[in-house]
């Protein structure tokens, strides 16, 4: 402001470029997103792309607001409920399973192959069977979600527990501490970073699981909504559902990240905290 404190010309341009750089770094993703959407809209308008090939962002936004918000919430709640219940069930199953596998060689040898078989069976193929066996209620959709989410959790938990430094296990042995304390005070906390990377994968899979289940049998939910919209050739509406679904996945993913940051800040590398 005052003439005196004004830096000389080169320094000024230096700080300016630095500021621009920092600004770019901070808003790079937002900027990219805006450019992307604007390009998309332009291509659709200039190229007169038919809506059934690629709906323009504006038509998608319009389609989004054409559907009553309470209706969106109903579909969202149906999907979210199944996804979260499946996710919770999967946590309840996989963490004890991983603990059992780490503690017992026999169990680990018998269960691992079974897990791999379950994991490599496409859930899409099994889903109709589950619906036939367990009915069209929430329970079978939760089970489908659980099936799709629990493998990464078991593997990451078990891996984390096995990666505990050997020294600490020896320390525990030399203290002649009860075995359960080795599990709870050393192995499980050590597995926390791994468990959370597993949780991050699982939460996004949970949404996929819930949607797959809705494709097979449902009267509500975002997956059902998307399928419905496509069957009526309401492509912008299907896109709106798809984008909404992606946003929900993103929020859930971020929530897991926040939970980790809040509950176990030490488990995140220092430069990322």
């Amino acid at each position: 402001m005052s003439q005196k404190s004004m830096p000389n010309k080169t320094a000024l341009s230096d700080t300016a470029t630095l500021a621009i750089r920092q600004w770019l770094l901070n808003y790079a993703s937002a900027l990219f997103f805006i450019v992307f959407v604007v390009m998309w809209e332009l291509i659709c308008r200039v190229g007169k792309v038919p809506v059934y090939i690629l709906p323009s962002p504006v038509s998608i936004v319009n389609a989004f607001f054409d559907v009553e918000f309470s209706r969106w919430l109903e579909h969202l709640w149906a999907t979210l409920r199944v996804a979260l219940m499946g996710f919770a069930l999967s946590i309840c199953i996989s963490i004890p399973l991983a603990i059992a596998m780490v503690r017992s060689e026999v169990l680990s040898r018998t269960i691992y192959p079974a897990l791999v078989v379950i994991q490599s069976t496409p859930v899409v193929a099994v889903a109709p069977l589950i619906i036939v066996l367990m009915g069209t209620g929430d329970m079978s959709r939760v089970l489908i979600t659980c099936l799709i989410t629990f493998f990464p959790l078991v593997v990451s938990t078990a891996t984390g527990m096995l990666e505990t430094p050997e020294e600490l296990i020896e320390l525990s042995k030399s203290l002649r501490a009860p075995r359960y304390r080795e599990t709870w005070q050393i192995r499980i906390p050590y597995a926390i970073p791994h468990i959370f990377s597993g949780l991050k994968v699982s939460i996004t899979l949970a949404i996929i699981g819930a949607v797959v289940a809705e494709f097979v049998a449902a009267e509500k939910g975002l997956g059902y909504f998307i399928q419905f919209s496509t069957s009526f050739f309401k492509i912008p509406q299907a896109f709106a559902g798809l984008i909404f679904l992606a946003v929900v996945s993103l929020v859930l993913f971020k929530s897991v990240q926040w939970a980790q940051q809040w509950l176990y800040p030490w488990s995140i590398p220092k430069n990322k905290r």
Binding site: P165, E167, L168, L171, L175, R176, I186, Y264, W266, S267
Partner: peptide, 27 residues
């Protein structure tokens, strides 16, 4: 016996004091 390893192998989720107290807590 007290064992000191090549790497400190402190537990990253405990404060320094709790790390020192860990053998007691664990035993």
């Amino acid at each position: 016996v007290g064992i000191v390893f090549q790497k400190p192998t402190l537990l990253p989720w405990l404060t320094v004091r709790d790390n020192v107290l860990f053998p007691l807590k664990h035993k």
